[in-house]
Design a protein around this nucleic acid. Sequence first.
DNA 1: ACTGCTTTCTTGACTCATTCAAGAAAGCGG
DNA 2: CCGCTTTCTTGAATGAGTCAAGAAAGCAGT
Lengths: 142, 142
Amino acid sequence: MTSSQQFEQALRAADLRVTRPRIAVLAAVHEHPHADTDAIIGAVREALPEVSHQAVYDSLRALTEAGLVRRIQPSRSVARYEARIGDNHHHVVCRSCGTIADVDCAVGEVPCLTAENDHGFVIDEAEVIYWGICPDCAHADS
Amino acid sequence: MTSSQQFEQALRAADLRVTRPRIAVLAAVHEHPHADTDAIIGAVREALPEVSHQAVYDSLRALTEAGLVRRIQPSRSVARYEARIGDNHHHVVCRSCGTIADVDCAVGEVPCLTAENDHGFVIDEAEVIYWGICPDCAHADS
DNA sequence: ACTGCTTTCTTGACTCATTCAAGAAAGCGG
DNA sequence: CCGCTTTCTTGAATGAGTCAAGAAAGCAGT
């Protein structure tokens, strides 16, 4: 059980002020992996009916910058958030319905992190997105 | 020299009608790799001052769907286009200035295309984005 | 607890990339 | 050259996300 107190601790550990919107946003992201901002606003309002969308946007930014949540945004998609962080996992995205699922990298802990020619860039992250068709959409077609 | 006639051939080969906007857009994408739509509109208007932005949007969509150009869109960036296609290369993006550079995949021809647990998805592409700091921004900091 | 400073939240307007829609123009097979 | 279809022009609309000003809440120090 991830309780509200654990989220509070996480916020303090990250040097963020503890506010009800932030706790609710953190909980919403934990409960709804890959949810977009709108869905998160909806989930947060179940606990705090009066929160403004701006508070959610601000919280998501603060949490993202603190590294408590991760923002992902496949092409043509709005921003989505997840709480699984620091384990170098990646995503499969369905071209048809946009569903996202987690995948662990097949190549090891830090996949592809060494590019052949890095053009002098200091690389700190490799983000991998697999594109394909999810089982549901594959069935719907056939 | 990639001439206008070659672009015309490419369009015909892809079963697309040959129009001046499309040729100009194709040329612009070839000349300005990773340019965003606005930059492409600007480049196209050097040859065809009167093209509407909509014509450019439409052309880019048609060319993308036909596979003549590739659309890339790192998080927090607008859509960008490139003409290098079909060679499974990836991108490094500067977190500071947004510059994009090409990188060949270190892992081989079709990198990471086999995920450990694919959740039943039929995967057809693996898109890799390396995040880091480009040489210019690294210098500016220090 | 109370004070005062700082950060965050509310409210509401605004931006801007992208899309939609209707009619005019251009491509192209016959 | 005709006629059908696709594409282009023009102009308005959409919508995720941001900005800004004042009100409210968190929190360190007393």
